[in-house]
């Protein structure tokens, strides 16, 4: 079984970010970066699958500059067998990333792609779906449970009305949600072991073609201070006074 886990380097999801003074983007000075948390769950899932079936081969892949090596090394330390850095300093939007991943998969037979449902920096929730469409592969999104069998993936996904279980023939694309697993601590011996695992650098097979253009970033308006009320009666009166409640 061959698993591909695409990962994205994102600004620390718990950091407070500010727009640059000219609004042309986010001020990244002094910020820390991490694997997109949803992608980290995908790496963890692949590592667990590999623990159950040691013949599994897990490859992590990312597009970006040399700085992304930190995240790819982390994927190796978590249990991936090899990492691939598609070297590019260009800007890539979702369809472009899907194009590049599709090109990789055409040359590198893979049974299943497991990836985060979205990245915490742009919240697009697009690449997995676009990739499946480009390849003509089945897809299961927002997975909260994954079971791989020969030629088949059984995926439980969360919907607004409850849980839904899908059976997909392989190869397939699966995007994962928060409840799938909780990534473990990365043990130090694993980090040292990762030093000898391959991190291959390759040139992109496609060129990004941006369909959208970001024109500006601004902070959300600051929240108005709340009002503290002393009792339920006071709360009801306040709500009625503001026309939120009738009567």
């Amino acid at each position: 079984m061959k698993i591909l886990v695409p990962i994205k380097r994102v600004v620390d999801p718990y950091a407070k970010v500010r727009p640059l003074a000219d609004g042309s983007g986010i001020d990244l000075t002094g910020q820390n970066f991490a694997i997109n948390p949803f992608d980290e769950i995908a790496v963890e899932e692949a590592a667990r699958i590999k623990e159950r079936d040691p013949s599994t081969q897990v490859t992590a892949i990312s597009i970006g500059g040399p700085e992304v090596e930190d995240q790819l090394r982390k994927a190796l330390a978590m249990g991936a067998d090899e990492s691939i850095l598609v070297e590019s300093t260009a800007e890539w939007d979702s369809p472009s990333v899907a194009d590049e991943l599709a090109a990789y998969l055409k040359d590198n037979p893979t049974d299943v792609v497991i990836m985060g449902k979205q990245a915490t920096d742009d919240d697009n929730n697009q690449v997995g779906q676009m990739l499946a469409a480009k390849l003509g592969w089945p897809q299961a999104t927002f997975a909260s449970k994954i079971e791989l069998k020969p030629g088949e993936a059984v995926v439980t996904r969360e919907t607004d009305t409850g849980e839904e279980t899908l059976s997909l023939p392989l190869p397939a694309v699966i995007t994962v949600d928060l409840r799938l697993n909780e990534p473990r601590y990365i043990a130090l011996p694993g980090i040292i072991k990762a030093r000898s695992k391959p991190l291959n650098k390759v040139a992109p097979k496609t060129s990004p073609r941006l369909r959208t253009c970001m024109t500006g970033v601004e902070s959300p308006p600051s929240r108005q201070a709340g009002k503290r009320v002393g009792s339920v009666d006071e709360l009801l009166a306040e709500l009625k006074g503001r026309g939120v409640l009738n009567g």
Binding site: E69, D70, R73, K74, A77, Y185, I186, A187, L188, I191, I192, A194, R195
Partner: peptide, 14 residues
């Protein structure tokens, strides 16, 4: 180094 930072991160998380 990059992977030393990873070890340090694990320590902080722990």
């Amino acid at each position: 180094a990059g992977d030393e930072k990873l070890m340090i991160d694990t320590a902080e998380q722990f």
